[in-house]
């Protein structure tokens, strides 16, 4: 599965556009991480726990998007966009969407 965030797949010809596919996930870290993050808010610096959380979630969202694309017979997803929103304190929603296409 080829995933790009441009209109085309470089070096390949798109033969079929299959429309929108998307993947989402909502994840949270355990309370211990939340408390550590609260402490980090005093000293500053990277919140490793949350970085990890968002990375994992984004990967899963992408995974689900790819699964949708595969289910409708596509072999590439172009013009992929990510969006992140916090639906609840400590929980992050990751959303990935793009257009499933068939390249030759």
């Amino acid at each position: 599965m080829i995933v790009t965030n441009i209109e085309t797949v470089p070096g390949k010809q798109i033969v079929k556009h299959l429309g929108l596919v998307s993947g989402n996930t909502v994840r949270s870290k355990h309370a211990g991480r939340d408390i550590m993050a609260g402490l980090k808010n005093i000293f500053g610096g990277e919140l490793k726990g949350y970085t990890e959380l968002l990375t994992e979630s984004r990967e899963e969202a992408t995974e689900r998007m790819i699964e949708q694309a595969r289910a409708i017979g596509a072999n590439a997803v172009v013009n992929v966009r990510f969006s992140t929103s916090s639906v609840a304190a400590g929980a992050a929603e990751l959303f990935a969407y793009g257009t499933a296409v068939v390249v030759e």
Binding site: S22, T25, V26, R27, S28, A31, A88, A91, E93
Partner: peptide, 23 residues
């Protein structure tokens, strides 16, 4: 349920269906 899930971490499945519906 989401509040509880927030304590232990992991997938908040109750919100996933909500967002899927909304989208």
């Amino acid at each position: 349920v989401a509040g509880l899930r927030n304590l232990v971490g992991g997938r908040v499945s109750s919100y996933e269906s909500l967002l899927e519906r909304a989208r």
